[in-house]
Design a protein around this nucleic acid. Structure first.
Lengths: 247, 247
DNA sequence: CGAGCAGGTTGACGTGGATCAAACGGCCTC
DNA sequence: GAGGCCGTTTGATCCACGTCAACCTGCTCG
């Protein structure tokens, strides 16, 4: 660590990175911590890191030693295999964690790329483990976060394994909408940070298919699209479409 | 807990369930624990549970309070959604853990069904968390296990999102082979515990497609199949097939 | 301001796998 | 040993999505 605890208390750097001052606390941290415990979290976050659009936060194969909490911005993670195929495995937004995949082998298993200018908190994993041995609620919270990731992935497997193109896109839009809502943004309108190609990769579809599905939704009055700007006009319609058995 | 620690030391039940006597230790537990620490693991496992083929270990929606280590047998997990669709999210064998998905909401998010007569160790989650606050290596091992699950799921997403039918089946067979090998069984021949339908569900294919792919592999001399009995004749052939760009 | 370009849309066509259907094989019960 | 059932195989047909290709739109940069 570049600085000890005493120094921390006075540097501006620390004030900026302190969890105790962070308005995202309720998103990435457990509720019900004592004031004291929350202050201890400040020890955990070693620094922040800013990334410009297109920059990698980490790359597959790199040594793992920290997880990242997104303070602002938007990311994608993707996996690349030898034969050239790749797939986007997820999109992450403010308040979500990145890097959990690296714990298992101590090397990152995917790439994380900023889709817009972003800022993350760097949480050295050994700090997190140390502190979660002392703070029960933190430990439990972290386990829940990892477990949620597993459940989320099962949802994606479900989507990829059983849904048809339009169902997948509807599910995708509803999921984004819900996550934006949880962050205090409008549930009904947002900018997509990713390209049609990236959406397609995530949903197991080609970009043309994604584009056609967008057009179709528009024709049917479910949404209004203008390139990356999306307005959801009929949430229930999307839900119905999503859960409707094959056509 | 039905029995306290003192009682544990003498009952036969405990001798049978003790981690310290378990020959699966190296599969489900971290290496490098002291004798003392290993004995403490015995406190963690509260009991065993036997299941007959077809029985549920847990069901989606049930309250979560323990994870399970498979001592012997074979399981599948599946998710069911309202509209009637379902998907197998995984197959688990000896030495693997079940139930990690339940941590996030304290309710299981999928069903776990024994595909043959099986036995599991019941590990109450609060015991595991308690002990991992005290034993660093246990904590770290558990985090690795959860992370590995995430990485595995990303692999499945990759499979579902980018591979064609025969590539998926090849990947599936190679994965099984590798896991059997790790358990000391033959890498080249094994009994499938699941039906074609279950394989299809897991791979995002219909059973007819799975069946045809099996036949095709047989014609090409890659494998020999007789219903559930599979012999792999050409591992490299399967690997090549798996990683070959759209044939 | 115009050129160049990346991302997006739309159309025409091809195909891998789904669907529908029939028949088969092993296994269990009576 | 006959009958029934479940899982599997195989064939014929269909269709959702991929592929290929043309064109369009908004941005960036000289």
């Amino acid at each position: 660590m570049p600085q000890n605890n005493a120094a921390k208390k006075i540097t501006l750097e620390v004030v900026k990175t302190a969890c105790s001052n962070c308005n995202l606390r309720e998103l990435c941290m457990p509720l019900g911590l004592s004031r004291q415990e929350i202050e201890r979290l400040d020890e955990m976050v070693s620094s922040r890191r800013r990334l410009r659009r297109g920059e990698h936060l980490y790359r597959a194969g790199e040594h793992f030693d920290a997880i990242y909490a997104i303070r602002s911005g938007f990311f994608k993670t993707d996996v690349l295999i030898e034969d050239g195929r790749d797939q986007v495995t997820g999109f992450q937004m403010t308040g979500e964690l990145l890097g959990l995949d690296g714990i298992s082998t101590e090397a990152h298993s995917c790439n994380a790329v900023a889709l817009e200018d972003s800022e993350v908190c760097v949480i050295p994993f050994s700090h997190l483990e140390g502190l979660s041995r002392e703070i029960r609620t933190l430990q439990h919270h972290f386990h829940k976060v990892m477990s949620r990731e597993i459940v989320r992935d099962h949802g994606v497997m479900m989507l990829l394994g059983t849904m048809r193109a339009e169902e997948r896109l509807a599910a995708f839009l509803l999921n984004l909408s819900q996550r934006f809502t949880a962050r205090g943004y409008s549930p009904a309108e947002f900018y997509l940070r990713m390209t049609r190609d990236e959406i397609g990769s995530y949903l197991g579809l080609k970009l043309e298919t994604v584009s056609r599905a967008f057009s179709r939704f528009q024709e049917e009055g479910l949404i209004a699209v203008q390139q990356k700007y999306v307005r959801i006009l009929d949430t229930d319609g999307l839900k119905k479409l999503m859960s409707h058995q094959r056509g």
